[in-house]
Design a protein around this nucleic acid. Sequence first.
DNA 1: GAAAAAACTGTACCAACTGTACAGGAGGCG
DNA 2: CGCCTCCTGTACAGTTGGTACAGTTTTTTC
Lengths: 215, 215
Amino acid sequence: MRKGEETRARILEVAEAAVLAKGFGATSIEELITETGITKSGFFYHFRDKSELARALLERYIENDNRLYDEIFGRAHELADDPLQAFLLGLKLLSELLADLPGGHPGCLVAVMCVHERAFDREVQEINRQAALNWRRRFKAMFEEIMAVYEPREPIDPERLADTVSTMLEGGIIMSKALKDPKSLPDQLLVLRSFVRMLFRSGAERRSAANAGLL
Amino acid sequence: MRKGEETRARILEVAEAAVLAKGFGATSIEELITETGITKSGFFYHFRDKSELARALLERYIENDNRLYDEIFGRAHELADDPLQAFLLGLKLLSELLADLPGGHPGCLVAVMCVHERAFDREVQEINRQAALNWRRRFKAMFEEIMAVYEPREPIDPERLADTVSTMLEGGIIMSKALKDPKSLPDQLLVLRSFVRMLFRSGAERRSAANAGLL
DNA sequence: GAAAAAACTGTACCAACTGTACAGGAGGCG
DNA sequence: CGCCTCCTGTACAGTTGGTACAGTTTTTTC
């Protein structure tokens, strides 16, 4: 019962790299089995069809993605008490991490599945939607925390602002690939950081005088 | 010589819709020819192979894309003399146009091709890169115009800022699809608009007192 | 250590799709 | 009439996704 999961994990690992490099449709099962060293029967023992592979792939990706954000923003919150400070630090840490990835960000599976929305795999689309809503929840909570302390320079919905983070991440990944410039993504995260800082800074920290001087 | 181009255009139109809906790999030639009412031989008369279809598709898409931006920001420049005012108006017009699209933005072919970067079609990747650089040029020029009049609240590279526009557009398209919410993209454009306004407004228009009060 | 369950292999096969090759036909044009 | 553009028709080859199923090896469990 453990050996099987190990093989399954190996297939998923190989598949993720291939899908991010070439897209889901362009990744053949044949290719995956030769690289993992199993047979086609073996593959279909683990996954009923290619759609199930897509689902498993997405779920795995989202799990890792969540873990990463938990870690980065968790660390940021340890290093900075102030919620705005912590968020800005988190963005910087994320930017640095992305800048240090050799060859740039490998790509986002959520985006891949968005582009490859075949009519039949509704389930994949639903997983995708939940992933996006999850990002929204995560960042919305951070902005609500920030807004409890800082008054934004312009009124803004924390949910929209949360989506802006995901939007710039996804867009940054696409643009980095289009431009063939791995630096573009981390750069854009820093632009976002500037915007957020500009939105909440500016001597408008009137709601909590105790936080004055922290920025 | 006209009949041929008409058929070719019809193929491209059908193909674009299919590719945006399902991805390039998931779009079969068989499907395209039944929908356009020609034969497979007819298809291969117009396109040597599927790669050439991809190239033609991208080129057509980019042309239309450019025309759209020319029109929108051209109109915005007619309606507002001030470069910042014009840019902000352009973003608003674009947001409204995107909000009025039934079913939301159909998707960006540049993003599709980014995801589908098979090793063999280098040419497609290059077209893609040129498209991204073209967006950069377009928006960079606008920001340089703005910066000639307005001092940004924080120092920022106009090129990076230009990429932010493309980044939010591409990311917005992806997130709209992931969330299954067509409103997300136009909403995010308005967030970007707020950010840009915040960056240049704020009584910092000191370089040109003549523009005071215009915003 | 044997039985049972899990994790595969091997083989054979089908349908769909990309792509090749090539012969030929319809229609406009000089 | 002949030439060119724009196709149609047919046949065929290779790859891939997927099914079916019998059999084998490995691992776990009692």
